[in-house]
């Protein structure tokens, strides 16, 4: 089996994790250092073994990209906007509360994914009933009100 260049990313990530947590561990009190060092060493040894395996594969069978296989059918114009909208959803939720952010997020993503408007309306109603029924009524969870919404409600009072 050929060595995959894409695996280099995995290896680099693992070494970065080892290095990052290794540096942080040196700043801990001595009694709290033992176990973190133990698991960091395990990760380091396993990653190194994988590097050796990759080197052997490269020498015996050659090298291939691996990225084509991983990102086959990947649509950046669909994926990244959804990721951005999802991150924005959490930020907007912090300021404007759960329900406003959820309506904006659902409408935004569903329109972007070309779902007919009448279906969007049904989805909004279903999701509202589900979250309100399950979390607010059943679990008694006070969903995020949002910093701005709280301030607005205070002003109105």
């Amino acid at each position: 089996m050929k060595m995959k260049k894409s695996d280099l990313i995995v290896v680099i990530l693992m070494y970065v994790v080892c290095g990052f947590f290794g540096v942080l561990t040196t700043g801990l009190k001595p009694e709290a250092q033992t176990y973190p060092w133990f698991v960091i060493c395990i990760l380091f040894v396993l990653t190194t073994l994988y590097v050796i395996k990759m080197a052997v594969a490269a020498k015996k069978h050659g090298v291939e990209s691996g990225f084509n296989e991983i990102f086959e059918g990947f649509l950046p114009k669909q994926f990244w906007p959804i990721v951005v909208m999802t991150v924005l959803y959490v930020i907007v939720m912090y300021y404007m509360g759960f329900y406003v952010a959820t309506v904006l997020y659902l409408v935004g993503t569903l329109l972007y994914l070309k779902i007919p408007k009448w279906q969007i309306l049904i989805i909004l109603v279903v999701m509202f009933c589900l979250t309100y029924g399950a979390f607010t009524l059943f679990l008694k969870v006070k969903l995020p009100q949002g910093v701005w919404m709280k301030a607005l409600l205070k002003l109105l009072k």
Binding site: T86, Y89, Y105, L106, T109, I115, F135
Partner: peptide, 15 residues
């Protein structure tokens, strides 16, 4: 459709 599932899953994950 997956287009409906994606945002609904995200909302349920967040909440």
């Amino acid at each position: 459709s997956d287009a409906i599932l994606i945002p609904c899953i995200v909302v349920l994950c967040v909440v």
